[in-house]
């Protein structure tokens, strides 16, 4: 059972990462990753919706018939996003001022519908919640990495305005790497998002290949040792 959860975690964070492996959810990804802070905010809000929708859809999975499942999933996700938007606006108003623009964008995140279809509708509630959390964190990771890369290249800062999102202690995170940086406009605009994402995707492939080779070599050594002993 523990193995099962480990598998879900590894899938969500790395092997089956929504962005780096599946190249899904690119619309919100490219729209908000001008800075690392924006990426983090969007990632956390999406994670919340992913968990809630995973849990709810898993709960009602025996009721829902396959023919009408898609409209029902869409309905559940839309209702959740609207409710999250309202609640954050009412009770976490300062956070809403930062995230406000992005929350409705969560609906356009096809990853949520994708997880509902591929995982939540076929698994019990607990694994579905956990899968939502892991996929969400994987998405957050991708958003923050992409946001940080674009922010450093495009504006010469890192985690600018993090204090607006996380509270005043986060000013510690705000770094100006290159003062008096003229900015690299292309990277800040959406095409820059595609460019940086391309390099990141390629980077992940290279990394996976290296890991693979390393493991194969170790396998060879282990079998050789077994043969000699």
């Amino acid at each position: 059972m523990n193995n099962h959860y480990l598998r879900i975690a590894k899938d969500g964070l790395w092997d089956n990462n929504i962005v780096f492996a599946q190249a899904l959810a690119l619309c919100p990804l490219l729209a908000v990753t001008g800075t690392a802070s924006n990426g983090l905010g969007m990632g956390l809000a999406s994670t919340l919706v992913l968990m809630l929708s995973g849990g709810l859809i898993s709960l009602s999975r025996t009721l829902i018939s396959p023919q009408v499942r898609i409209p029902i999933f869409v309905l559940i996700i839309a209702v959740l996003v609207s409710l999250v938007d309202m609640f954050i606006n009412a009770w976490l108003h300062d956070l809403h001022k930062v995230l406000g623009l992005f929350i409705p964008l969560i609906v356009t995140n096809c990853a949520i519908l994708g997880r509902a279809e591929a995982f939540a509708s076929r698994n019990p509630v607990l694994p579905a919640l956990f899968d939502g959390l892991m996929i969400g964190l994987g998405f957050t990771l991708a958003l923050v990495v992409l946001g940080a890369a674009r922010e450093v290249l495009g504006s010469g800062t890192l985690f600018a305005n993090a204090a607006l999102l996380l509270g005043s202690w986060a000013t510690l995170l705000e770094v100006t790497l290159v003062s008096d940086y003229a900015g690299f406009l292309l990277i800040v605009l959406p095409p820059g998002g595609f460019l940086v994402l391309g390099f990141l995707l390629a980077g992940k492939r290279v990394l996976d290949k290296r890991i693979n080779q390393f493991q194969q070599r170790r396998q060879v050594i282990v079998t050789a040792e077994e043969a000699t002993s």
Binding site: L63, I64, S65, Q67, V68, P71, I72, L75, I76, A78, V79, S82, L83, M86, F87, N89, A90, W91
Partner: peptide, 29 residues
Amino acid sequence: AYQALLLGGFATLATVLLVLGNLLTHDTI
């Protein structure tokens, strides 16, 4: 009939939830 009821049921539930959410948060917002 089952499909229609299912869709209708979920749509009703969604409406109720949204109305409740709005009632709860409207004044605060």
